[in-house]
């Protein structure tokens, strides 16, 4: 087992790096406020970033439980269907979609 000083050292190192990656862009952007490109990116980025997160988290799910891509895609379809049909209630859509996937994966 690694020593406690190693563990604490790693925690301190990773803490400063993750914080810097989150904080420095805000500091840089503050100096670029009025710029057209920053304003455009602020409008253009969210939808795309979320779609990318959706796809890559779908991949991690399928990697974690191999051989379940078809169930995952079905569950995504259910999630989308519930969300559009039941008035965009996030918790409901996520809950039902997840339940469908978990049941399918554990039942087959």
């Amino acid at each position: 087992m690694p020593s406690t000083s190693y563990l604490l050292g790693v925690l301190a190192l990773v803490f400063s790096l993750t914080l810097a990656l989150r904080a420095v862009p805000f500091a840089v952007l503050r100096t670029l406020r009025g710029s057209v490109i920053v304003q455009r990116l602020a409008v253009w980025m969210p939808v795309g970033i979320m779609a990318i997160l959706a796809v890559t988290s779908l991949r991690s799910t399928v990697v974690a439980v191999p051989g379940t891509l078809h169930w995952a895609l079905l569950a995504v379809a259910v999630t989308v269907g519930v969300h559009l049909a039941a008035g965009r209630r996030t918790i409901l859509s996520v809950g039902i979609g997840t339940a469908v996937y978990v049941v399918l994966v554990n039942a087959w």
């Binding site: 253009w44 939808v47 959706a54 779908l58 799910t61 999630t79 996030t90």
Partner: peptide, 28 residues
């Protein structure tokens, strides 16, 4: 097994909502 799918479902739903708020089809 499989509970991690909730994150995928969440991001999917948020993509739909973001798209609803702003039709950024080119970005998508």
């Amino acid at each position: 097994e499989g509970l991690e799918f909730a994150l995928c479902a969440l991001f999917t739903v948020l993509t739909l909502d973001a798209l609803h708020a702003r039709r950024e089809i080119p970005s998508l």
